[in-house]
Design a protein around this nucleic acid. Structure first.
Lengths: 150, 150
DNA sequence: GGCTGAATGTTATGTTATGTCATTCCTCCG
DNA sequence: CGGAGGAATGACATAACATAACATTCAGCC
């Protein structure tokens, strides 16, 4: 198998192949659209862009592709804004840790683990089997803070 | 002012009063409904229950009351299930930390702080001003684990 | 009495997401 | 070759969640 590629779309294709999955043209295009937005983008925004390129597109077309990408860890769903954002480190799936600016809508994914075992401790105490953790931090980003407090 | 009451609904009324707000009959009833569900409940489920009691009820009626309760910290919105759950410690507003069972739908709110400063550190590094933090842990609860692994 | 503001009612619509069945296309196997 | 089977997509309909905008009610107050 070829070496891990530099381009993010090619990386995505490589990752899918490595798992016996296929980044079809449609999925690839959806991924490109999500990637091009530098912030969480709504499913219907993706839909509109697809529709502009190829005529009428129905919601399931978009949701199926997004679900696939989320399933592969290539894209994260951002619950607090009902949007989707490209993962910044998709090689291995992980729970997203996002800082989301309420002012400009941008989001930053943080790779470094921001949990310090307390969640796992608590889960242990509750005898709760963790499957995933949603962590979304809301506030104002650096740029927006500068903009309004000059 | 009277002492802090034992009943959760009375507590809620007391908290609202202390802030110059009013827990009106409608809001009180919505709070009771959310409280009675021992898990996150959807806005439209609340709506159905209200409608059963008082005839036609429109969505804004319910959403306004829920928004008020969320604003007062009496109820948390659970993003990952589009639902609302009564806060277990409403006296002072806080970000919710929830363990949600994907099997039975129950949720448990944890009062103990599960963050260890890493999020704040990261925010500092990003010059990001935190306004709120969404933390929702998904998995299987104790009861459901017992049920399927006897 | 009439002004005011908070709350609620009412109508309509916007936004997000999914269920279901049909169609296409590729692959594998005989 | 030809058909079975599976993955992906297309197409249609509808469900589920949420809000905008304006009307009405009602209590408190001058």
């Amino acid at each position: 198998m070829a070496a891990f590629p530099a381009d993010r779309v090619e990386q995505a294709a490589w990752i899918c192949n490595a798992r016996g999955q296929t980044l079809t043209p449609l999925r690839r295009r959806v991924f490109e659209i999500v990637l091009a937005a530098d912030r969480p983008i709504g499913a219907y925004d993706v839909l509109d862009m697809l529709a502009a390129e190829r005529g009428r597109v129905a919601p399931p077309t978009v949701y199926r592709s997004l679900d696939f990408l989320v399933g592969q860890g290539l894209v994260h769903k951002v619950l607090s804004v009902n949007g989707f954002v490209a993962c910044s480190a998709a090689a291995r799936p992980h729970d997203a840790q996002l800082f989301i600016c309420g002012s400009c809508g941008s989001s930053v994914e943080v790779a470094r683990q921001l949990r310090a075992g307390l969640i796992e401790e608590e889960a242990e105490a509750l005898d709760f089997a963790i499957e995933s953790v949603v962590l979304e931090v809301h506030g104002r980003c650096h740029a927006c803070r500068l903009a309004t407090a000059p």
